[in-house]
Amino acid sequence: MNWDTFIWFALPAMILWASAGIVVYRKKSKVLADILMIAGISIYTLFIIGFWINIERPPLRTMGETRLWYSFFLSVVGYVTYRRWKYPWLLSFSALVASVFICINLFKPEIHSKNLMPALQSIWFIPHVTSYILSYAMFGAATVGAFVQLRKINRKGLSDKKIFDLLDNLVYVGFGFLALGMLMGCVWAKEAWGHYWTWDPKETWAFVTSMGYLAYIHLRLQGEKREKVALWLLPVALILLLITWIGVNYLPSAQGSIHVY
């Protein structure tokens, strides 16, 4: 199996994932969603195995190969997290993002072979980035939820306990992935550069972001108190997150950052 046959696995996998992401909203077809999702993951896994055997080395070198794993882990972890928390959009969302990475591989094949510099050739690269993507997904959803809740409070003067339950869970799960992503980054940095934390601009911003969500977690420990402050913290923290993710490269303070992506 190689990139020429990729489409014959990618297309069915995407169709299966998309169907799972749609039927999961119907109360009666939960089992069907499970079957579709697992079938999609299996087909996709089959390609990775065949590809691995074909190229006679672990597919971890080029950007295209890296995206192959993003899609894999996103679909698997997204599915497992959905099974744990039963939020159907979790399944749809991870299926969608996984498909986006597949589409990049299908439509922009010339960047398959973009060369990975030696420092990026590490087993930590993929879990580090995938973990971050998953936490971004949770935090993105939490921000939407925060606005829904703020509107409820403004209209009725009262917050909805169910929404707060959802928000707190999302932030906890998101923070768990964020922490894992950061820790893997630390261990990787130690292996590659000799120190686990150098306050590189990207690291500084990742720290700022994590403090935002940590503040939310602790603010929420006192239940009803300061509800609005906690809710407004979520969009603010998301802005910090977006700066960390895409904005850092444009900041004057980031000239000479080791993070080039």
């Binding site: 744990r84 339950d165 707190d168 869970n169 906890y172 799960v173 923070f175 768990g176 992935f177 922490a179």
Partner: peptide, 9 residues
């Protein structure tokens, strides 16, 4: 972190 992912709040 795993505890937070598995247990939620």
């Amino acid at each position: 972190a795993v505890a937070m992912i598995v247990r939620g709040h």
